[in-house]
Design a protein around this nucleic acid. Structure first.
Lengths: 163, 163
DNA sequence: GCAGTATTGTTGTCATTCATAACAATACTT
DNA sequence: AAGTATTGTTATGAATGACAACAATACTGC
């Protein structure tokens, strides 16, 4: 009698196609691949957490930059985030329509817009961030531990200097 | 006399708009943001390195998975990479047109394709990987150090279990 | 063996993201 | 004043990703 594969006596029917784990092969040692998978997981969790705020990562980042640098010119904000200025327009349009941010004339340069959060935008960002920390970052720290998170952040920064 | 900012006596004209560093604000503590920036940098470097091979990250990953799991069914390959099967078709079509991979009838299931690399595909992948390690991964290890890279890989794996 | 259901590869379609070119208004340089 | 650069914007196209539908095939329960 062959040794049963499970604890119980009843024979569980194995899926006919042995679902053997797929080997990653060369990918296993490629940092970029592992980095991408991790990033997708984190963004996915971010999305779920921010669903009730209807806020995507890029939108959050714009609000955060404006909040930390009020009056910064539109081109500087997009540049800081690595978003090209053409694509930044629609992004900002939506935030303005939602009354979270506003374009103001930039003092001394009539080409430029100085960006600010509205009062609503500031409150909204604060709420979103609180919720993010309470849920999303909390989950991150659950799997990582807080010392590891700091370690990870520092390693990631070194990579960002690559390109 | 104010202390000169540069070594030379000649006063370099500062850009009139003080290019003060932009504060990241709330983003500074958000893992997802830092992760994304790092991932973009690494992918950018990957792209440059693989330009002469005309190979994008997704294409490389498909070749690597097939190489490590020859005969694996098409749906398993796309599933392993998190690419939905509809979008996987065109991706594989191109690799097949370039004679790097091929679809074969799967034994015992006339619906499925079993995927293999061609001899050309195997040689191509080996070359691409060699080049990648010599240039791309070398640069990565230059900024990271090899112990840090292993540490980073392990931290990233923990994150991937998030979603 | 048969009826209903699930899976596989594929096509088509749509939304999102990203890069590029062009343009008008304005600023800067000389 | 003339030429050049920058800013915000529009338009456009490539690449990516998600979804529904379909035909062929496989599986399940009876």
């Amino acid at each position: 009698m062959p040794a049963p594969r499970r604890k119980t006596e009843t024979v569980e029917i194995e899926t006919p196609e042995e679902r053997q784990p797929v080997s990653l092969g060369l990918l296993d040692n490629l940092l970029g691949y592992r980095l991408r998978r991790a990033q997708l997981s984190v963004f996915q969790d971010f999305l779920v957490t921010m669903k009730e705020f209807d806020l995507r990562p890029a939108q959050f980042s714009v609000l955060a930059i404006i909040d930390a640098n009020p009056g910064l010119k539109q081109s500087r904000v997009s540049e800081a985030l690595g978003i090209n200025r053409a694509n930044f327009v629609a992004l900002l349009d939506e935030l303005e329509q939602r009354k979270l941010a506003r374009r103001a004339p930039a003092p001394g340069d009539r080409r430029s817009n100085a960006l600010f959060l509205t009062a609503k935008g500031e409150a909204f960002l604060k709420d979103a961030y609180r919720h993010l920390v309470a849920q999303h970052e909390k989950r991150v720290e659950t799997v990582l531990g807080s010392a590891d998170k700091q370690q990870l952040l520092s390693l990631l920064d070194k990579l960002t200097t690559l390109a």
